[in-house]
Computed example of a mutant assay.
Amino acid sequence: MAENEVKQIASKLESLRGSQLSSQAPPLLSRAKLALLRLNALVPSEETHKSHLHLATTILELGALISIRLRDTESFTRYYQQLQPFYAIEGSAWSRSHAQSNQSKVTGLYLLLLLSVGDYAGFHTVLEGLEMSAGNEKLEKDQFIQYPVRLEQALMEGSYDKVWGETKGEHLPSDEYAVFSEVLINTIRSEIASCSERAYPSLPIANAKNLLFLDSEGAVVQFAQSRGWVAKDGRIYFPQQEEEMLAAEKDVMSASGMVIENTLGYARKLETIV
């Protein structure tokens, strides 16, 4: 009975689209996990029936992918962690057909999440584990794994234009990858913005558009306002840079005043000696 219920819920979850995800998916996933508990399959063991293991893996993978579509990274991370003992018991998904498991897709998404938050150590730890379990040859043919690997290489090289190119729709291995790709671009944009406001007093809006990978000058102005920059006369001005320059000028003036005062005092002492 519980097994049939899980199968029906899995079928329903796979059919959900758009607004149905946020309204129907969470209660359906809760029902499925309760049914798996009744089957003693939510926590896997060597004694768990193989068909129940497969059902649990399917539900947890659907939960992970739905969490991505709902932009709930915390929920996605929990599902990814719950899936690890199932993958360990069932064996590597790279030795099974894609129709049987979404391990490759879910793992690639997790690698992309690690990149988007700058956790490079965690990224390489996961990747090394995959290399040991699946082998380099299989991983090199896996589009879901190679996508974050290419992005990480481009980031290490500082080739942000390559990263930007990889995040275009035609390069994404699946729709779910667009979520983290967008987060990654926003992170890179923020880093470039921080460097720019320290390096320049101002920039032409047209140059800032290309530098920040924005689609229009209007988007540049909007981004500038969110950073507290000033957009006027076709340029972006960085108030922080101006404040630092003014502070530096004040320091110079203050230091110059001290030098002059010390010099005059020294001159007065000489007159007294003479």
Results as ranks from 00 to 15, higher is better:
5 E>Y: 04
10 A>F: 03
12 K>E: 10
16 L>V: 11
17 R>M: 06
18 G>M: 07
21 L>V: 05
24 Q>Y: 03
26 P>F: 10
29 L>P: 00
36 L>A: 13
37 L>V: 09
39 L>I: 08
41 A>T: 05
42 L>Q: 04
43 V>K: 12
45 S>M: 05
45 S>D: 06
46 E>Q: 09
48 T>C: 06
50 K>I: 15
50 K>F: 08
58 T>K: 15
60 L>W: 07
61 E>A: 12
63 G>M: 09
63 G>D: 11
65 L>M: 06
65 L>K: 03
66 I>V: 13
66 I>R: 03
67 S>Y: 07
68 I>Q: 07
71 R>S: 04
74 E>A: 14
78 R>L: 10
87 Y>R: 15
92 S>G: 08
93 A>V: 00
94 W>Q: 10
94 W>E: 12
110 Y>F: 14
113 L>Y: 12
114 L>Q: 10
114 L>K: 10
116 S>G: 08
117 V>T: 14
117 V>C: 05
121 A>M: 00
123 F>S: 02
131 E>K: 15
135 G>S: 02
142 D>M: 06
148 P>D: 15
149 V>I: 02
153 Q>E: 06
153 Q>P: 00
155 L>V: 05
155 L>K: 05
155 L>M: 13
163 V>K: 07
165 G>I: 11
168 K>A: 12
168 K>V: 02
169 G>H: 10
170 E>H: 08
171 H>R: 07
171 H>Y: 06
174 S>P: 00
178 A>R: 11
184 L>G: 10
186 N>K: 15
186 N>D: 14
188 I>V: 14
189 R>Y: 01
189 R>W: 00
191 E>H: 05
191 E>Y: 01
192 I>G: 06
195 C>I: 07
196 S>M: 09
197 E>W: 02
197 E>L: 06
197 E>Q: 13
202 S>M: 06
202 S>L: 05
202 S>N: 07
206 A>Q: 15
208 A>R: 10
209 K>S: 09
211 L>Y: 04
213 F>T: 12
214 L>M: 10
215 D>V: 15
219 A>D: 11
223 F>E: 12
224 A>V: 08
229 W>I: 01
230 V>M: 08
231 A>N: 07
233 D>P: 00
234 G>H: 07
237 Y>G: 02
240 Q>F: 01
245 M>A: 14
247 A>W: 01
247 A>D: 05
247 A>I: 02
253 M>T: 10
253 M>F: 02
254 S>M: 07
258 M>R: 13
262 N>T: 03
262 N>A: 12
272 T>E: 01
273 I>F: 01
273 I>V: 04
